[in-house]
């Protein structure tokens, strides 16, 4: 869809991980069903449909219904994975997510496919850079923004095991496997991927590997940046944020609007408990035409941009 530059060899489209994981879960648990709004191919669920046609509910192009039907399926004892383009799933069906899913507190897994600016040139109608701001206001709803295939699989499995509503962003933007030692995923627990005490960079999703590259660039200048993968946005790991504040400076980076997302969430914690100089990196709002890669470069959401912001912030420490 998006005419992005070819991804480096060995990078991944996390939608593949999503579909493989859901198939593995469905093999083991007959309660697992998928619910789509004409979004079979874009969710990479063609094979699921082939294997379990009776366990895929396609309601047509109808996001309000795809969400509400998910709630009903949960009432009937199923574990539904509702999968649709993040931009439509959230904006179009916001009241269903609020009332039928979060407020009723049902066991539904919402999968926001091709989130962020993955649809690049298709424009702001197809970007989903407001979803975290909208969704993190809703009680009960767990929000996860995985960073790579390993974490996507862990998040999908943890969501299936949790009795409650979950929203997971699944990006189509290629990402590398992140370096991890003793990796262990837990909903609500951030992961420190690199130690450092000069400042902390808190990122999630496709920005995590860019944050790690920024930390590498900063290290060449003798700056030790801690890199934290804050994949769960709700519930937020406040303890790790407050630990990060002890470095004296915090940069947040997200493939989202600078208003109300991960940066907003971190700022609420810091402003309340331990105000330190902070930069929130993300998108300014409705974006101009450009591919996903171009948009990230244009708005300095790359290693150089994150490193520059970190240097400027350190000057305020």
């Amino acid at each position: 869809m998006s005419a992005a530059a070819p991804a480096p060899a060995g990078w991944h489209d996390c939608r593949d991980t999503f579909s493989k994981t859901v198939e593995a879960l469905a093999e083991a648990d007959p309660r697992i069903v998928t619910v789509v709004s004409d979004s079979v191919g874009s969710s990479k669920l063609v094979n699921f449909r082939k294997r379990w046609p009776e366990r895929m509910v396609n309601v047509g192009i109808a996001e309000q219904t795809v969400v509400a039907v998910g709630a009903g399926l949960a009432n009937g004892g199923k574990i539904p994975f509702v999968s649709a383009a993040a931009c439509f799933l959230t904006a179009r069906a916001m009241e269903q997510i609020k009332a039928d899913i979060a407020y009723t507190n049902v066991n539904v897994k919402l999968i926001g496919q091709s989130s962020g600016v993955a649809y690049g040139e298709l424009g702001p109608t197809h970007h989903s850079i407001e979803d975290m701001a909208w969704l993190r206001l809703l009680n009960n709803l767990t929000l996860i923004v995985p960073s790579d295939p390993w974490e996507t699989e862990q998040a999908i499995r943890a969501a299936a095991a949790l009795d409650g509503p979950v929203f997971i962003r699944v990006s189509r933007m290629p990402v590398p496997d992140l370096p991890r030692c003793n990796a262990r995923f837990e909903i609500g627990k951030a992961e420190t991927l690199r130690d450092g005490n000069d400042l902390a960079i808190i990122a999630n999703g496709v920005m995590v590997h860019r944050a790690l590259a920024a930390a590498e660039a900063l290290a060449a200048d003798g700056i030790a940046a801690r890199v934290i993968n804050m994949s769960t946005v709700n519930p937020l790991d406040e303890a790790t944020i407050l630990e990060a504040a002890k470095t004296g400076a915090v940069v947040t980076v997200e493939e989202h609007s600078v208003r109300g997302g991960l940066g907003g969430a971190v700022a609420e914690v810091l402003a309340t408990h331990d105000p330190v100089p902070m930069r929130i990196l993300g998108f300014p709002g409705f974006l101009p035409t450009g591919s996903a890669d171009w948009l990230l470069e244009h708005f300095h959401l790359n290693a150089a941009g994150i490193a520059d912001a970190a240097r400027q912030l350190l000057a305020r420490k």
């Binding site: 219904t65 039907v69 009903g72 009937g76 199923k78 009241e95 009723t104």
Partner: peptide
């Protein structure tokens, strides 16, 4: 109470989902 209602136009879509669950299981 099966589902939280209040905003209008929510009950039927949720009920369709419940009925589909029953249909899948031949309940």
């Amino acid at each position: 109470v099966e589902t939280n209602t209040g905003p209008l136009g929510h009950g039927l879509p949720v009920s369709v989902g419940i009925a589909i669950a029953g249909q899948i299981d031949s309940a």
